[in-house]
Write a protein that binds this DNA or RNA. Sequence first.
DNA 1: GTCTATAGCTGGATAGAC
DNA 2: GTCTATCCAGCTATAGAC
Lengths: 218, 218
Amino acid sequence: MGALKFVIVPRKVSAINQVSAINLGRVSNDVKRPSGRHHGDLRRVLEEAALELVAEGGPKACTLAEVSRRAGVSVAAPYKHFADRDSLLAALVQKGYAEQRDRYVAAMKRKVEPAEQLAAFARAYVEFAAEQRPMFELTFAAGLDKTKYPELLNAGAELFEVLREPARNLRNTEAGSRDLVLAVAAAAHGLAVFVLEGVLLNVSQAKDLAASSARAIV
Amino acid sequence: MGALKFVIVPRKVSAINQVSAINLGRVSNDVKRPSGRHHGDLRRVLEEAALELVAEGGPKACTLAEVSRRAGVSVAAPYKHFADRDSLLAALVQKGYAEQRDRYVAAMKRKVEPAEQLAAFARAYVEFAAEQRPMFELTFAAGLDKTKYPELLNAGAELFEVLREPARNLRNTEAGSRDLVLAVAAAAHGLAVFVLEGVLLNVSQAKDLAASSARAIV
DNA sequence: GTCTATAGCTGGATAGAC
DNA sequence: GTCTATCCAGCTATAGAC
């Protein structure tokens, strides 16, 4: 009829936390610490290894076991830093959101006209996908259940809000500005996907297209 | 720490299936062939089961083992019909492409002006994603290496060509019409993704947005 | 904080009988 | 064409030592 199975349902979510804001600044000194020394930095090392794996074989190739191997630690070690595999991915995605936000804010700051700000965002979006491919894949194609990680939903919403300001200057109604943001972001997203899928081979061309689509939609 | 939860894990097979008779042309006579009878229709039954699984848990939940269980056959049976798991998925994706083509051609046929044809396509694209979600997910988020399945590349290119005609009527150059197709398709794709991700909740609204984006880009 | 060791499971794929 | 039986590989997660 059936079998009884015991399942641990993690209750505390907090383990995911703390991803805060350290994007670049790789510690590129060699990772090879053959055995058990705690470098204290393992969390970051794990994140980097995970990103590498995504880069090489997509999200599904990013297993905790392989991440551990790459990091040169045992398969048990990651569990001191992440509740489980998905939590590791979620942490990465959150970092990705933070970096995206920074990029978009910076890109828009260089323009004054709202329409040009949105065009700059569209450019930056495609650029992010191209330059940070694994991050992008992780964010949109890792099959991660984002509803389980409220921080991610928040980060996504925050991203949306960044675009809301220029949009409000271009539309009278709330619904109008919301639709504008959605349409521009969707166009940029679609082109980004095309670039990653190989449909569009030339990145700068894709960026141009994104910008002109954004202007057209405005 | 966590909570213990008891879960009934159905071990025996067949109780699960029963779900057939879904799409078109179903053989709705009872699927209950408890043992070894070759209905000859297994290939289709497997495809349907696979699609169901994608619908329930995304591409990664679609394993050959589970597909076999659903279909009420042994895990070895599928190998007479598909070389391996990816081949099954690829077959589904190809069916999906064919259906998409039909839909887009039909949608565009109802319009005469090229711009309206592209808008109709954009609508139909979002509609397809919403109505045939598992197909759409399979096509764009199954992590399938399409370069291993030339039929898929062809089918994708064919889809592209369908849009090329109206685009040529709107742009003078080859590059121009190609970019137009890409931009319109990208906008539609982005909105479709937003719908599936839950960012955009209202499908008909998404379709409207897709159509107006398409018109704007034109 | 990290290791070793291991339990437990699931899936892919094959061989050989019918 | 399908089954049974089986093998193997790989991953997740935990326990307990240091």
